[in-house]
Design a protein around this nucleic acid. Sequence first.
DNA 1: TGTTGACATGCAACCGGTTGCAGGGTACGG
DNA 2: CCGTACCCTGCAACCGGTTGCATGTCAACA
Lengths: 332, 332
Amino acid sequence: MSSKSKVPTISQIAERAGVARSSVSRAFTRPELLSATTVLRVKRVAEELGYVPNSSARALSTGKTGNIAFLVPDVANPYFPPMIRSAQLAAENLDYCVFLADFEESGLKEEKLIERFAGKVEGVILISSRMPEKRLKVLAEKIPIVLVNRDVLGIPRVLIDAGSSLKQAVRLLAHQGHQEIAYLSGPSETWTNKQRQAAISEVTNELGLQLVVIPTEKPSLESGQAIVDQMISSRVTGAIAFNDLIAHGIMTELSSRALTVPSSFSIVGCDNSISPFTNPPLTSVSNETTEAGKIACEMIMGVLGEMNSKNDQLKVLETLLIERETIGPPCK
Amino acid sequence: MSSKSKVPTISQIAERAGVARSSVSRAFTRPELLSATTVLRVKRVAEELGYVPNSSARALSTGKTGNIAFLVPDVANPYFPPMIRSAQLAAENLDYCVFLADFEESGLKEEKLIERFAGKVEGVILISSRMPEKRLKVLAEKIPIVLVNRDVLGIPRVLIDAGSSLKQAVRLLAHQGHQEIAYLSGPSETWTNKQRQAAISEVTNELGLQLVVIPTEKPSLESGQAIVDQMISSRVTGAIAFNDLIAHGIMTELSSRALTVPSSFSIVGCDNSISPFTNPPLTSVSNETTEAGKIACEMIMGVLGEMNSKNDQLKVLETLLIERETIGPPCK
DNA sequence: TGTTGACATGCAACCGGTTGCAGGGTACGG
DNA sequence: CCGTACCCTGCAACCGGTTGCATGTCAACA
């Protein structure tokens, strides 16, 4: 309808400014190659006409899109947004734009998404990847990948190690007199879950405690609620959950059965996402997700710069146990 | 280094398959124009060589990038992730990719982001836009825009109307005997805030209640904590907060002063984001953010399809007051 | 057997930038 | 006064797809 929908191109700027198309291009990308007056003239005309460089065209000729993709298992899981935010901010400072996608905890969907983004981005940041290691390695040959919370040799990665904090939590429970505790596990195939479970199991063995592992469907509130029966019938007196959501599901369900925390059960969460808000406030493990997002972003930029030799960076971030009010002496 | 970093192009596929470049292109985009055997042959060769169409090139010649941008004031605010998630899913189903960016509650940053994305996307979804109406209208002429929680005539928009639920909350407080209540306001220039405040004020006037408006710095937990003094000194007995975060900040600070909810103060939140997790569970207004994200996405696709006549769609979503445990009779 | 038309494919221009190379102009040194 | 070097600018090819048009083939029909 309106004439303003016309976006001007370098050709139009060039004509109007009386220079060649290449000069217009250079005025924006390599102004030091032109005389100051030409640059000024071009820029003024461009401003006047509302010129915006067409980034598809630029991407086509330079081979750089200026985009990266950020793939997470579940956007709505409160664990991820702070990480997304910091990564996006970091990218923006380097003049990159970030695509966000949710692979719904599925390795298949994850792979489909990577393929779909492959042509649109220069690199991909994968959070808590569910893909088989083999596929990851294959894809990493085609497109720069940085992993967060997944440990694959040869692919740059940043790991958040909750191990020491969880060990501390187990000792705390033991100190209070708990003999049998449960680990309410998360997605079984993830690095995060394996690593958390291993840390816990190491200490329970060391201290001679009984450890019961109860799997959950998803790391969600509902899944937590769904396993309360199992937890009760397993005779444990305390539980460490894969994350805060599961822990809170447990607490909700317990309270609907008139069982209170920590007098009936001791509960520990992980990730410190909703733990400050629960009733009572949940003892949990705080981790630097914000830092992780930023580092992942910086890492991928580094990879883009080099692009040649084998890249095997590894960054491990530590965590902190935050004691609140859900640990007490065992009930019985 | 490795030969696999070479991404094949249509030319290579064409040569290998013994057809013209255009046939390769058509094999993927308009296969019905080719014989079945040719399509098959091309696809097999493509598969073999690991061909992936270069989307910059495609975007350049078709003018369609297949991307949209989703701009939010604060990714980490738990109000937004469900909306982001549903919008992204909806986009994906239509084969679109979505850029996510955080404009940090700033209209200036918002505008910068729009300009930056302008060349990369076909449309922009703006959540709780902070930009002046005038600028919005100007930008909407250049690029398709859909607004969420912002009401500008002539720009397609979806509004979540918490008005009736908040009115109900005021009535509930009045019914309990509260005479003076506070509205802990959110970002003053936002549509959401104005609309919420107006609804509350309408009922307090109607019922002859005293309404004190207390502004907050940001719609965050910390800002809630920071205004507790003001709230106490204003002599109100109940408060409705712009959102759950502010409400929870209030509750936290009150409890650190040994004041309990609802016996000392009655508190109502909004958005139903963290309200199920607070201690005690916060009475709040539930809204269909998931639905809003999906609708916004569908709307922008609609706009892309038409692209011509004036587009003034408007969709209003209703809300629900969820009564939990933070309303009681006034203290004094 | 000649005409017609549908169908399949190729040719070449085009999308809007970027960039290597060449050439014109000017200043400076010999 | 000429050679040279440097600075600025233009030309034209190229990035990898898409698409209007032309061509060629073959079957059906009169």
